[in-house]
């Protein structure tokens, strides 16, 4: 589904992502792990076009999407979440999700201003769909709550709901469990499982090892921008390079 070939990004002299080859298959959940500063977020940024790669190609469903703008990449079906700022804080939950339905509203820049007879119906469909997504994410009791006043964990879940609203084929989650308490973690893991059952393909960055190991089909480990291991959770756990990288990076990883 997603194929990455020789992807590299230099920031000045720093090689943040270095010559990465990776393939993600349809329907699987693929883990991307590595110590802090390993280049994981940068890797996401390269795929969805926040930054342009120095070298390498990104191919999605057979199409070369290297260097395309994030909104075009989103249109192709790749939606990512961020480590922070995944919500529109001044909007309510339902407003958040219905804005995130943008791609599915069929309302383009110029149509958006014209109140055609069809647009009323479209708006209604959007609200219905948004509510479905909110329910799926387990946020229905907060439908009309301002996003800003949600708890940290619920904000993160709303972030995932926003991503889902854009109807991804490939969903890329950047540390979705970061800063959550135990209960929120298990809620979110359940949500991710439900998404997998729906047939979604997921690329996951996560520091919570237990969650990653239990969720992921395959895991890809990078350090200093370079691949150091790839395989199923059991293989990766035993890999001496991986153990060394994590010990070397100390406890913050």
């Amino acid at each position: 589904m997603l194929e990455v070939k020789g992807l590299s990004k230099f920031f000045g002299g720093l090689e943040a992502v270095s010559n990465i080859d990776m393939t993600v298959k349809a329907g699987e959940i693929f883990g991307l792990i590595g110590p802090n500063g390993a280049g994981k977020t940068t890797f996401f940024n390269l795929i969805n076009g926040v930054i342009r790669p120095t070298r390498g190609r990104v191919i999605f469903e057979g199409q070369d999407i290297t260097g395309k703008k994030p909104h075009s990449v989103a249109k192709k079906g790749i939606i990512r979440t961020f480590q922070a700022n995944n919500i529109f804080p001044d909007f309510t939950v339902i407003e958040n999700v219905s804005l995130s339905c943008h791609l599915k509203t069929g309302i383009g820049i110029f149509e958006a201003s014209l109140h055609t007879p069809g647009s009323k119906k479209k708006e209604k469909d959007v609200l219905e769909r948004s509510y479905e997504i909110i329910k799926h994410a387990g946020l229905e009791s907060f439908t009309n709550t301002a996003a800003n006043s949600l708890s940290h964990g619920h904000k993160r879940i709303l972030g995932i709901a926003n991503a889902l609203a854009a109807e991804p084929k490939l969903l890329m989650l950047d540390e979705p469990l970061g800063g959550m308490n135990a209960e929120e973690v298990s809620e979110t893991i359940n949500l991710i499982r439900r998404l997998l059952d729906d047939g979604l393909t997921i690329l996951l960055i996560e520091h919570n090892m237990r969650a990653t190991m239990s969720l992921c089909d395959r895991i890809f480990v990078i350090n200093f921008g370079k691949k150091i291991a790839e395989g199923n959770p059991a293989e990766v756990k035993e890999n001496p390079e991986v153990i060394k990288a994590y010990l070397g990076a100390g406890q913050n990883a």
Partner: peptide, 16 residues
Amino acid sequence: KGIKQTDSLAESIGIN
């Protein structure tokens, strides 16, 4: 208004 609040999110969910 969404763009004003979180520009990067708006872009990544497909808004030009």
